[in-house]
């Protein structure tokens, strides 16, 4: 397995853009985003996205399950809007404090729409996008990196895994229908699993309980980022082309 070195950014300063639609997701992903920004010498930009779909679906407001599993009823649109505002403030405050402590350049803004769409909209080639997601289980197993066949593991992925003390598992996306090599191969301390797209890859992500998933392979060849994140249920790190 080859390792690819080089900066993740293009012309101008590199950016790590962290997006989240709630404070728990933001908090869970901020550690990863800050580590990436530190490693790459990048600017950390945070975007809090109010999910307009949620706000528009008034009928869904009374159908909420808290992150601890309690069914909530009687939630109004106004209350939900206030909750979004509160989370945005907390996210901003957390970013400000942590970035200052780590001497990182950071910025914060709010947006409306859908997290993944918003991040894709503002990203440029070379940016690292971090889509926040708070894992439900406290102990997560590994850092997963999705690679195309023949692609090397990015340096920042190796460093991130070393920094978090998690093992790195490379998921090599093979073409659909192709016979994948036997799983569980090791090279350079990284376990490699070959997964036929898309089902095998999604099934792996569903079963792995990763702490984060890094998508290094071209997105065009993979299931949508939202689908990947639904399967992995953890922060998603996307590397835009460049």
């Amino acid at each position: 397995m080859q390792r690819e070195t080089g900066r993740a950014g293009g012309a101008g300063r590199a950016r790590v853009i962290l997006g989240a639609s709630c404070y728990p997701d933001a908090e869970a992903a901020l550690v990863l985003a800050m580590e990436l920004a530190r490693q790459l010498g990048a600017e950390l930009q945070a975007v809090f996205v109010r999910e307009t779909a949620v706000l528009a679906a008034g009928y869904a407001h009374s159908r909420v399950v808290s992150y601890s599993g309690q069914r909530e009823t009687g939630l109004t649109g106004a209350a939900l809007a206030k909750a979004f505002q509160a989370d945005a403030r907390r996210f901003k405050g957390l970013l400000s404090a942590r970035a200052a402590a780590a001497a990182l350049q950071s910025s914060f803004r709010e947006a409306e729409g859908h997290v993944q769409e918003e991040l894709r909209r503002v990203s440029q080639a070379g940016d690292i996008l971090v889509l926040g997601f708070k894992p439900i289980l406290r102990s997560a197993g590994c850092i997963a990196v999705i690679l195309a066949e023949g692609q090397g593991v990015p340096d920042y992925a190796l460093r991130l895994a070393r920094k978090t003390g998690k093992p790195l598992v490379a998921l090599v996306a093979c073409a659909a229908g192709a016979e994948p090599p036997p799983a569980g191969q090791w090279e350079g301390g990284v376990e490699t699993r070959f997964c036929a797209l898309p089902e095998a890859l999604l099934r792996q992500l569903e079963q792995m309980n990763p702490a984060a998933v890094i998508v290094a392979a071209p997105l065009a060849d993979l299931p949508p980022a939202a689908r990947l994140q639904d399967a992995a249920r953890c922060p998603l790190i996307l590397q835009t082309g460049g």
């Binding site: 639609s21 679906a57 909420v64 399950v65 309690q70």
Partner: peptide, 26 residues
Amino acid sequence: VAIMRTPVGFSFAGLRDGKVLTQEQF
């Protein structure tokens, strides 16, 4: 059914063609 993440927890709404149904659509 779309499962969305909000500040208060998971929210559930209808999903058509990959898009969440608005109140009017519902």
